[in-house]
Simulated scan of single mutants.
Amino acid sequence: MKQISIKPAILGIGTAVPVYRLEQREVASRLAEALQDYPDSARWARRIFHQCGVVTRFTCEPNLLEPPKQCRYLIRESMEEVPSTEERMQLYKKESVPLALEAAGQALADSGTEVAEITHLLTVSCTGQFLPGLDSALIDQLGLKRDILRYPFQFQGCAAGLKAICMAKDLVSASPQAKVLIVCVELCTLHIQPSARREDLFGASFFGDGSSACVVADAGIGKLQEQAVFTLGDYRSVLLPDTAGEMVWEIGNHGFNLYLSPHIPRHINQYIPAEVEHLLGGSHMPELWAIHPGGRGIVDAVQAMYGLTDEQVGPSRTVLSNFGNLSSATLLFVLRELRERLKAGQSAEAEGVALAFGPGLTAELLRISYIPSGAQAPLKPDQLYV
């Protein structure tokens, strides 16, 4: 019986955003003008836009840059002027594919992987749907094999990007020849609501549009890495108790309706320490932290919980500031930012944890290891006997 050393790893990452940039100050000003008949809401909106940690983000919808009277996504006298869910889904279908193709192409190039080598395709999105879907479009336009194994992750929220990475880890562990392409695309701004309600204004304050992708494959012992990689270790997925109403995402007649409870950071403080302890199994606290910036309060909660330095949460805060919350696509933006910082600092090997949260409340946790270029994957690999 022959023993094969397998170490699943993220070998390459790609990201893409639309061409239209939303400057937070300008958006807040336009929104306040649209809410002039609702002064309390306008004051609250200015404050939350200022405090949410976002400076810029991107959108696929140029109408969101128009003055308030021309912007169909802001509060109107008649809902007949507001884009319907059908119209928003048509725009999603048109704009999601080019972004997904750009991010996927970058990930393939970054990993040095040929299109023909990809054996599995995982597509992730919660902000739009169409059939034949994103997976079909990517096969046709990227030139992927037509018998590739496809796994769409639909409508699972912000945590789904990390969940897909964990699934890819299992696929590679089970089959060392597997090369998995993950593509996440989210057009969150399509669901901005024409409302003066605080819940809707909060959701409008920090979500952005974008796509991310990665290639997960074996980086087993003895393989020198031409590119810095993140190897993937143990993971944990847990549904937190008594939190089902804290993050809600439902389909409405004018886009998808989002509710985010202000108590989410408190629930993270209450439940996540035990989950991280379970994941680490008594080992030392890791140096690297890739936290999905679902909002400024989530990053603040994790930083305070573990006494993390500003440098340790820097990648998450930078992504939130420059792109906003991109739902499932965000975690790979964070990992790319973290990798580039480690490369620039000529960092040695380091251990870390990736965290993401979604409706449920669901928590996804994954142990990662940074391996610089020119190094070998670490010891303690997954083992496969053939």
Rank of each mutant, 00 (worst) to 15 (best):
S5M: 10
K7E: 11
I10K: 11
I10M: 14
V17A: 14
P18M: 12
R21V: 15
A32T: 13
Q36E: 13
Q36G: 02
A42C: 12
C52P: 00
N63Y: 08
L64M: 12
E66V: 00
P67R: 11
K69R: 08
R72L: 08
E77S: 07
R88M: 12
Q90H: 11
L99C: 08
G105D: 04
D110K: 10
T123E: 00
C126F: 06
G128Y: 02
G133A: 00
D135S: 12
I139R: 01
G143Y: 03
K145N: 09
Y151G: 02
Q154L: 09
Q156E: 05
M167A: 12
M167W: 07
A174M: 13
P176Q: 07
L181V: 08
L187S: 08
T189N: 06
L201W: 03
F206G: 03
F206N: 02
S212V: 10
C214D: 06
G220V: 06
I221S: 10
Q227L: 02
D234M: 00
Y235N: 13
D242W: 07
G245D: 13
L260I: 12
E275N: 10
G282A: 05
I291W: 06
H292K: 10
D300C: 04
Q303I: 01
F323H: 15
S328W: 06
L331S: 12
E337D: 15
R339N: 07
Q346H: 14
E349Y: 05
E351M: 10
E364V: 13
Y370V: 11
A375E: 14
A375C: 15
A377Q: 10
P378N: 09
P378K: 06
K380E: 06
L384H: 15
